[in-house]
Write a protein that binds this DNA or RNA. Structure first.
Length: 711
RNA sequence: GGGCCCGUGGUCUAGACGGUUAUGACGCUGCCCUUACAAGGCAGAGGUCCUGAGUUCAAAUCUCAGCGGGCCCACCA
């Protein structure tokens, strides 16, 4: 439903801009590569990636199935993309362009290969981006292990005793009086009998565990920082499959968990363990965009890196040149550039390797490597200069807030470096779709709605109204009630149209008509509505115009105006042919304009009615302009008075359990002089709409506004 | 720990350049077949606009603090 949600937004924007006269370049892309796909295929089809060719085939067919399903959903909601422009990140042309951009980065030294501790998932056997990991809270044990220092016991605390073979130093806090005397000395590791330096550093948390921590290469990011800062050696005791290496001595060949168990037993047996505490802690795990959830390791490996840190200032500057909707989302981008951190490795690898045969890299690239060049792909960068000049920067980037730090960030970064220019004029940021219960959609909560279910139950224009109801940047729940209401609105619109069509059968389309106060009233309100819609749609605010259109059509137009002109339509012999024609003209004009306003939201029903009412396509017509000459303050005031008087009469009938069609013998209105003037001019409308036989209006200085006496 | 967003009748929600009676939906109550629509219409009940303080003639709206919720980031040897 998230895709239905934001693609409806994009489609409304595209349809609106077309009607405003823009030539809208509207391609749809599909993001295909990456770990999420691989994990899905492994899980659902039960295949492993040992057989690379077979695995890739399975990934491609799975992805194509997903694309077909999504494309059908988009077609089902009337998504007006130009399918001939569709791009897929797994297409050869697309991949070629990715490679070109990477080669350009390589030639500039921005892309480089280096050995560096990376976040590594032993289960998926791949390096992960920082954005792909998160912390999972779980139960663990904190082992207090005695080390020896000049005959004294120095007790460290660790949750990972199996990292002992990788220990290269022990750290204490410089202000910690308990351990001050050990600073600069050496500690002896049990089992391995190796001596490591004892170093004082501010980063040690004195309150945690024993206040003494051992540094292993690499247990966490702090270890990386310390290893670099103090130029300590690196000992790799865990390999890329999560198996202990030869450095682990007798534990070599064991898995991490097996080694943890055995080394702990040995330490206990030898009397080196002073205490084991239970501990709830957060373990860095493979959490994002994946169902893996395995704990991750920091393993030094040769990997390809792209230097973003040196260009953050430019990314921020580029982002500031764009319009963000809502504007505070720019702040999230800047926050990200300010807080992202990774100890930099300055190693650059020479490109002149002299290899005779190029061998593809076996690693799985971060999927953002593909998806962050889309503005270049669709604009024909390095392919078609004419197209590029016309379509770059992209006018509007729609996306969710959860991938500002990834999709938006990497896209702005790469396009800025490759083109020297910003890649978007504006960004429209949507929130997440929550379940009907208001909570995040998740399988475990059982509140997931797949698009097929509402699409089966409701028509596309109903789903689109639901989607248009969201606010930029805010999360938005899926709501069956909102769908019900939206569906009923369509029926209402249909019935209004039937009524109007019925009365337009003999309408000659004469424009030169003698409009009455009531006509000016509804036409005035219509002009206000048109400008309200334009102002908001220009800001990509969709919910406010839709609500305003629905309220106008349902309540002002149907509940009030239609009832107020029925007598003129049905009895021209009493009220005059020209009055009837004025009403016909107004009915047609209002409905036409409302159909144009609704067209971006509910294109299907709008076209259907438009075809009968006007002919042709309303989505190809021009967006209406508010005609200020039709706004009459006097008519607005008279119309509101008429609504109020009719409302009083309806209330009376309701209280007396009378039908609204029941006739009233006599109604007397007392009004102050200003209101009385206005009321007198709309007396025929009051009389006819209220089914009043005799209506008397008199001026009274005792009332404020007006009062009614009904018999 | 840092940042951002949010808190409005039973439920969901609009409004946030300060200014009549706070919007609408669902639900609820009563009534009514208006020569379009009962999948409709009319009328009605229901609110300390999270709490407190401040600015102001005036605060749902602005400021600060607190409480509660959400998201992102960081930390947890």
């Amino acid at each position: 439903m998230g895709h239905i949600y934001n693609h409806t937004w994009i489609d409304i924007a595209a349809r609106y801009k077309r009607m405003r006269g823009y030539e809208v370049y509207f391609p749809q892309g599909f993001d295909c590569h990456g770990l999420p796909t691989e994990l899905k295929v492994e899980k659902e089809l039960g295949v492993r990636k040992e057989n690379r060719e077979d695995f890739i085939d399975k990934c491609i067919s799975w992805t194509e199935k997903a694309i077909n399903r999504m494309s059908k959903q988009f077609d089902d909601i009337g998504y007006s993309t130009d399918w001939s422009l569709t791009y897929r990140t797994m297409d050869d042309d697309y991949m070629r362009l990715i490679q070109e951009t990477l080669l350009e980065f390589y030639s500039k030294g921005i892309l480089y290969r280096a050995k560096h501790p990376v976040l590594w998932c032993p289960r998926c056997e791949t390096a992960l981006a920082k954005a792909e990991v998160g912390y999972v809270e779980c139960e663990g044990k904190l082992y207090h292990i005695d080390l020896l220092c000049e005959g004294h016991r120095l007790t460290i605390a660790t949750t990972r005793p199996e990292m002992m073979p990788s220990c290269v130093a022990v750290f204490i806090h410089p202000d910690d009086d308990r351990y001050a005397r050990y600073e600069g000395k050496k500690a002896l590791l049990p089992i391995y009998g190796r001596e490591v330096p004892i170093i004082a550093d501010e980063a040690v948390e004195m309150e945690f565990g024993t206040g003494v921590v051992y540094l292993c290469t690499f247990g966490d990011e702090q270890d990386i920082a310390w290893q670099k800062k103090y130029r300590l050696p690196v000992i790799e005791s865990i390999d890329s499959r999560g198996i202990m290496t030869g450095e682990a001595g007798k534990y070599a060949g064991l898995s991490i968990l097996e080694a943890r168990k055995e080394i702990a037993e040995d330490l206990i047996e030898d009397g080196h363990i002073r205490k084991i505490e239970k501990l709830t802690h957060s373990v860095l795990s493979h959490t994002e965009r994946s169902s893996c959830k395995s704990p991750i390791e920091l393993i030094p490996l040769y990997q390809w890196f792209i230097n973003v840190k040196d260009y953050l200032k430019q990314v921020v500057e580029s982002s500031q040149q764009m319009g963000w909707h809502p504007s505070y989302m720019l702040g999230r981008m800047i926050d990200w550039t300010e807080t992202m951190d990774w100890p930099r490795d300055d190693v650059r690898v020479c490109s002149k390797c002299g290899a005779k045969k190029a061998v593809g890299v076996g690693d799985v690239a971060d999927c953002w490597v593909d998806s962050s060049v889309t503005p270049l792909v669709i604009s024909g960068w390095n392919r078609n200069d004419e197209l590029f000049d016309k379509t770059y920067p992209v006018s509007l980037r729609p996306q969710g807030y959860e991938i500002i730090r990834t999709w938006a960030f990497y896209t702005i970064y790469r396009c800025m470096l490759l083109t020297g220019d910003k890649c978007f004029d504006e960004l429209l940021i949507n929130g997440m779709v929550a379940g009907p219960d208001g909570r995040k959609m998740s399988k475990s909560l059982g509140n997931v709605i797949e698009p097929e279910e509402p699409l089966e139950k409701y028509c596309a224009d109903t789903i689109r109204q639901w989607a248009a109801g969201g606010t930029p940047g805010d999360d938005y729940p899926f709501s069956w009630e909102e769908c019900d209401h939206s569906q009923r609105f369509l029926i209402k619109l249909w019935n209004i149209s039937r009524f109007i069509m019925m009365h337009l059968e003999d309408y000659d389309g004469e424009e030169d008509v003698d409009l009455r106060d009531v006509d000016y009233w509804i036409l005035s309100k219509l002009q206000v509505l048109v400008s309200e819609c334009s102002v908001n749609l220009d800001k990509y605010v969709f919910n406010i115009p839709l609500t305003a259109i629905r309220s106008f059509l349902w309540h002002d137009f149907a509940d009030n105006y239609l009832e107020m002109v029925k007598h003129r339509l049905y009895k021209p012999e009493i009220y005059g042919e020209d009055s009837r024609r004025a009403a016909q003209h107004t009915l047609k004009r209002v409905l036409e304009t409302v159909l144009l306003l609704l067209s971006p939201y509910t294109p299907h029903i709008s076209e259907e009615i438009w075809d009968t009412l006007v002919g042709g396509y309303c989505s190809l017509s021009s967006w209406p302009k508010a005609d200020k000459s039709l706004i009459s303050e006097d008519a607005l005031a008279k119309g509101e008075l008429l609504v109020e008087v009719i409302s009083e009469i309806r209330r009376f009938k309701s209280e007396h359990q009378m039908s609204l069609g029941a006739e009233l013998a006599l109604v007397e209105i007392q009004a102050d002089s200003i209101s009385a003037d206005k009321i007198k001019s709309i007396e025929p409308d009051i009389k006819a709409t209220g089914r009043i036989n005799e209506l008397k209006t008199s001026v009274s200085d005792k009332v404020d506004g007006f009062g009614l006496r009904i018999k």
